[in-house]
Simulated scan of single mutants.
Amino acid sequence: MKNILIIGGSYGIGLELAKELQTENNVFIASRTNENLSGLDITYIPFDATTDTLDTSILPAVIDGLIYCPGSINLRPFRGLKLETFESDMNINFFSMVKVIQNLLPQLTASEQASIVLFSSVAVKMGMPFHTSVSASKGAIEGFAKALAAEYAPKIRVNVIAPSLTDTPLAEKFLSNEEKREKSAQRHPLKRVGTTGDIAQMASFLLNEKSSWISGQIFHVDGGMSTLLVNS
């Protein structure tokens, strides 16, 4: 069985992925809370990615898969954004992720071929108003992932999933009523909002040996938003 570590797996996409992986893998979840984890066949590690250093000694000597889920959605006009907002977004989305990966390098390189899955946003490719802060931090992830994939090939594969708005607790305020949900759905060529299952299925594939010839890629799981015109 593979050893899979999910950073931030107590809700949303991480939780859905843990449910998907638990039967055929040894799943470890490092997150701020163990809420929603009861009944799952996983090992829980208390961990706040923005403030803590992960104690790798309590993990197996080999980590075959790493998924970094913590993130932010700060959508505001640029003129009203303070530098602190950019710093906060960079910290949770990028710098904390870098620290986790650096700490886990010995365990990742001990795997026959480890897989790292990171998360970006459809806004990085499209250029959306009010997304300057989140797009900056998510764009950093995409550039970082390609460089890391090149540096550690073939030992570690690194890929990125770039979703559109997905129905998670993080996006709750943007989907808080039926009108908002319908407007968001209509912006997508496939006419619906993404689910945690949509994203978790892609992440599961990228962790699997079926994707062993894939690395350094950005996968837009976004209902067609980034590449297709919406029918009028």
Rank of each mutant, 00 (worst) to 15 (best):
K2H: 10
I4Q: 01
I6F: 13
I7A: 10
G8Y: 04
S10K: 00
Y11S: 13
I13Y: 00
G14F: 11
G14Q: 12
K19G: 02
E20T: 05
L21I: 00
Q22H: 07
T23Q: 08
N26W: 09
S31D: 06
R32T: 10
T33K: 07
N34H: 15
G39W: 00
L40G: 14
L40A: 04
L40P: 03
I42M: 07
I45F: 04
I45M: 12
F47H: 06
D52K: 06
T53S: 14
L54H: 10
I58D: 00
P60S: 11
A61T: 15
I63V: 15
I63W: 03
I63Q: 10
D64Q: 08
G65E: 07
I67S: 06
R76W: 10
R79V: 11
K82M: 03
L83H: 14
T85S: 10
M90P: 01
M90A: 02
N93V: 13
K99S: 08
N103K: 13
P106K: 12
Q113A: 11
A114T: 09
S115H: 09
L118K: 13
L118V: 14
F119L: 08
V122L: 13
K125A: 13
M126L: 15
P129L: 11
F130S: 10
A136P: 03
S137W: 01
K138E: 12
G139D: 08
G139S: 04
A140S: 14
F144S: 09
A149N: 02
A153E: 09
V158E: 01
V160F: 05
A162G: 04
S164V: 00
S164W: 11
L165I: 15
T166H: 06
T168A: 02
T168V: 03
P169C: 02
A171R: 10
E172P: 01
K173L: 07
K173M: 13
F174S: 13
F174R: 06
N177D: 15
K180E: 15
R181C: 00
K183I: 02
S184R: 11
A185R: 11
P189L: 01
G194P: 13
T195K: 00
D198S: 03
Q201C: 11
M202E: 01
M202F: 13
S215K: 04
G216I: 07
Q217L: 01
F219G: 02
V221K: 08
V221P: 12
T227D: 11
L229P: 00
L229F: 12
S232F: 06
